[in-house]
């Protein structure tokens, strides 16, 4: 690059020939793009072909065009109709939805508090939110099992309130699952939201309050539109991994709460039924992308 120093075409980006700049762009972007194509994009497309194949006697893939796995997804099998798989998909969707909602509700006060700190301590608060992230999710989730066990104050307190039997643990159950889910995903939502809250134009909030807007109106008409960019990023990066989460439900939810994540993992693990696993993966992908599309289609202008 440096030896071409003398050529006139080097002075401005605009003067050097388009073809040459494209070549450089390709040299830089080509390898990472090839990597993503090989390990992610193409295999994702291959899922469609595999979902249409069937499982052989020894767990091998028998290529062909068969809708049997798609039908199984909707509950049609040799033994008649059952709602099991649809129910598992809906349960995963519901879990992700509620988790995201609780994270939003908790993230607003949190980010407002952080954003109103003096600039020096603000970084400290942000780091404080990130640090728990660095302990692996499996360890953190298992730690909840300890915290919620019957010998410790939280369970004793709830038992004293009469909400659970004395001597019982606070797990397994949906309380433990949501506690685990929300503490796992809260930073995903809080950090992007914080970036927006810090840029908030506080004069607008004040003006709205001066003009006797109710608290709800202030939120809907000044805070929500201003924090929407951060909030929408936060919702996406929370909702997507929450859909597929199965570690938290496995550890804190007991054996009964099968999630789509478990199911997919089983098909590629013990069951060795790759075609059905591919069909389930496609269903999860479609459900996730559909949710995001509906979310993107929401016109927030309608709210205010």
């Amino acid at each position: 690059m440096a030896k071409n120093h003398s050529s006139v075409a080097k002075f401005f980006g605009h003067i050097s020939p388009v073809k040459k700049r494209r070549l450089w762009g390709l040299a830089l972007a080509g390898p990472p793009l090839a990597w993503l194509l090989a390990f992610l994009t193409l295999p994702c497309l291959a899922l469609v072909a595999i979902a249409l194949a069937t499982r052989g006697q020894f767990g091998e893939i028998v290529w062909g065009f068969d809708l049997v796995n798609i039908k199984r997804l909707f509950g049609f099998s040799l033994f008649g109709w059952s709602s099991d798989f649809i129910f598992i998909l809906l349960r995963s969707l519901f879990l992700a939805f509620v988790t995201t909602a609780i994270c939003i509700i908790l993230s607003y006060p949190l980010t407002f508090y952080v954003a109103t700190r003096p600039p020096k301590t603000r970084v400290f608060w942000l780091i404080l939110i990130v640090i728990p992230f660095w302990t692996n999710v499996v360890v953190r989730t298992y730690a909840w099992l300890l915290v919620l066990s019957p010998q410790l104050p939280p369970a004793k307190f709830v038992a004293w309130l009469g909400l659970i039997e004395p001597g019982a643990a606070l797990y397994p159950g949906s309380f433990a699952v949501y506690l685990g889910m929300v503490t796992t995903f809260l930073p995903f939502l809080a950090l992007p939201l914080d970036a927006s809250v810090e840029r908030l134009n506080w004069d607008l909030l004040e003006a709205a309050a001066d003009l006797y807007a109710s608290k709800i109106a202030v939120f809907r008409q000044t805070i929500l539109p201003q924090t929407w960019p951060g909030l929408s990023v936060g919702i996406i990066v929370t909702f997507v991994p929450a859909m597929a989460m199965f570690v938290v439900t496995d550890i804190l939810g007991g054996a009964k709460t099968m999630m789509v994540g478990n199911l997919i993992q089983q098909q590629f693990g013990q069951a060795r039924d790759w075609p059905f696993g591919a069909a389930l993966s496609l269903a999860l992908m479609v459900l996730t992308l559909l949710s995001l599309a509906i979310f993107k289609g929401l016109k927030i202008e309608k709210f205010y």
Partner: peptide
């Protein structure tokens, strides 16, 4: 290219894991 780059962000990690399993078994 944007589509390729954004895929890991909008696709749950278990699907990425499945995709990798497929890629490895072929390669």
């Amino acid at each position: 290219i944007d589509l390729i780059i954004n895929l890991p962000v909008v696709v749950p990690d278990i699907i990425m894991a499945v995709a990798l399993t497929l890629a490895f078994s072929a390669l």
